[in-house]
Write a protein that binds this DNA or RNA. Structure first.
Length: 467
RNA sequence: GGUCCCAUCGUCUAGCGGUUUAGGAUACCGGCCUCUCACGCCGGAGACACGGGUUCGAAUCCCGUUGGGACUACCA
């Protein structure tokens, strides 16, 4: 069987957004699943809107997501010599011609057609003039006037277009650059792309591209037009819908695997399964299971799948992604700070890494910052005695593990006749400064004897000074 | 306007003519668990857009209506 070759061709006119990321993901997964090749190509023929910043942002986002490419990135602006060859081929074979109609004339032409209730197509003024190349001429593709063009789409099925709906579209601009429909075909031909997976907003472009393939006597690739991702208002995704760039989710504390997991399930399914690790996706991803209707981007569901990944992924992997967020909180994490143990106490109560970093803060700070209300409510004189007793007993305890700690508290409760609930909260406030934290035994164990003892002492002092 | 695509709980979806009182996930509501917050567990409410066919039988096939989306550039 022929080796599958897919590609992702972003235009560098902004950051990589989640919709684009999904398209990249589908192409990447399919190539990996089929043991094929995945190519990255930057479509920067719109020199006005393309920027280097965007290129960098897109590359960084893909890397962060773990979507790696086998070839590229190719840049279309560096391939103009190839396009020129193909233009000449089309002109020589009579499939393209020079046109000297001005933009203003075209504008009037279109408005007139619209007013008359007709299609705003190019009227073919220069189609048969046999014009030679001149400075401000554009090159147009000579499209057939009748007949049909069929797109055999893997997802949509057979889609039939009447050729008379199409017009002689421009393939080379008057400034010498080339237009999308042309370069995309030339690139896909020359890069031997045989499977094109893209948003179904391109379905209407496909007959034009197929016509180009035919004029160039090239084999037509397989097309799979995936339904688009829409915003909450069911319109095309844009900034209006809030955070849409991949980096935004990175910064909010999402795991790349979680974003991938969410994105793939938006339009693709594998029975009732919701949770996937990325290597599992590669194994299970096929084009047949892509749905036909558009999906709405749902932040709530993404958040919950992120929480699921934080819960289930190995702490070591979480640690790698958590570190930047801890630094952001300005806390110094030493090599021996048992980060993985810290994570184990927080992974069930964090939906994002940012949340986790905030929750982990107390483990690392030198001095506990007390929440005023918490102190007022729980560090009262009445707990002074049990707190002191606890301190004494912890100081002589050899190993801090859950079993030993449980015993210490059991005895403490027996001896002081105080309820567990009555002592747990004061201890929590003493150790973390807050009323909310992981379980008491967990934090004592992970904090370690030294920190626990000093924090208990400090709390005891605080209460003593108040009275 | 024209062309094309799409239509199952609020959202993501399973379903590919009978096994369905339409399943799961998420969000929401109630309960249990409990040292706080979470997690977890149990339960509840919630959908086949509408109308015609085809068929012994339709969420599933066909047609129409309605609704939504995309495209219609010397953007990609």
């Amino acid at each position: 069987m022929e080796k599958i070759i897919t590609r992702f061709p972003p235009s560098p006119t902004g950051y990589l957004h989640v919709g684009g990321a999904r398209t990249a993901l589908f192409n990447w997964l399919y190539a990996r699943h089929m043991n094929g090749k995945f190519i990255l190509r930057i479509e920067d023929t719109d020199v006005v809107r393309s920027t280097q910043n965007s290129v960098d942002a897109i590359l960084n986002s893909l890397e962060w997501l773990g979507i790696n490419w086998d070839e590229g990135p190719y840049f279309q602006t560096r391939r103009f010599h190839i396009y020129e060859d193909y233009i000449q081929k089309l002109i020589n074979s009579g499939h393209a011609y020079y046109c000297t109609c001005l933009p203003e004339e075209l504008d009037i032409m279109r408005k007139k057609a619209a007013a008359a209730g007709e299609k705003p197509k190019y009227d073919g003024t220069c189609r048969n003039k046999g014009l030679a190349r001149t400075d401000n001429a554009v090159v147009r593709f000579k499209a057939p006037l009748s007949g049909i063009t069929i797109v055999n789409d893997i997802i949509k099925g057979k889609v039939v277009f009447q050729n008379n709906e199409l017009d002689d579209f421009i393939i080379q601009r008057s400034n010498g650059t080339y237009t999308y429909n042309f370069v995309v075909v030339v690139d896909d031909i020359s890069m031997k792309i045989n499977t094109i997976i893209r948003g179904d907003d391109h379905l209407n472009n496909t007959p034009r591209q197929i016509l180009l393939y035919q004029a160039l006597e090239s084999e037509i690739p397989s097309f799979a037009h995936v339904p688009m991702v829409l915003g909450k208002d069911k319109t095309r995704l844009s900034k209006r819908h809030g955070a849409m760039s991949v980096t935004a989710y990175k910064d909010m504390g999402y795991l790349p695997d979680a974003l991938l997991n969410y994105l793939v399930r938006l339009g693709w399914s594998y029975g009732d399964q919701e949770f996937f690790q990325t290597d599992e996706l590669i194994e299970k991803f096929t084009l047949e299971n892509i749905g036909r209707s558009p999906g709405i981007f749902d932040q709530e569901k993404l958040l919950s799948i992120n929480a699921e990944h934080i819960k289930r992924d190995p702490p070591a992997r979480i640690a790698k992604h958590l570190l930047p967020f801890l630094k952001e909180q300005r806390c110094t994490v030493e090599e021996d700070s048992h980060l993985e143990s810290v994570i184990r106490t927080l992974n069930k109560r964090s939906k994002t890494l940012k949340e986790m970093a905030e929750g982990a803060l107390f483990y690392f700070t030198e001095t506990v910052s007390y929440d005023e209300k918490a102190v007022k409510k729980f560090l009262k004189p009445s707990v002074l005695k049990p707190l002191k007793l606890l301190l004494d007993r912890l100081q002589i305890l050899e190993t801090f593990n859950e079993k030993n700690l449980e015993k210490v508290f059991e005895n403490l409760i027996k001896d002081t006749e105080i309820k567990f609930g009555k002592i747990a909260q004061p201890v929590r406030v003493a150790l973390t400064g807050k009323t909310v934290s992981p379980g008491i035994f967990e934090i004592i164990e992970v904090l370690g004897k030294k920190k626990v003892v000093s924090r208990l002492k400090k709390a005891i002092e605080l209460i003593a000074n108040k009275t």
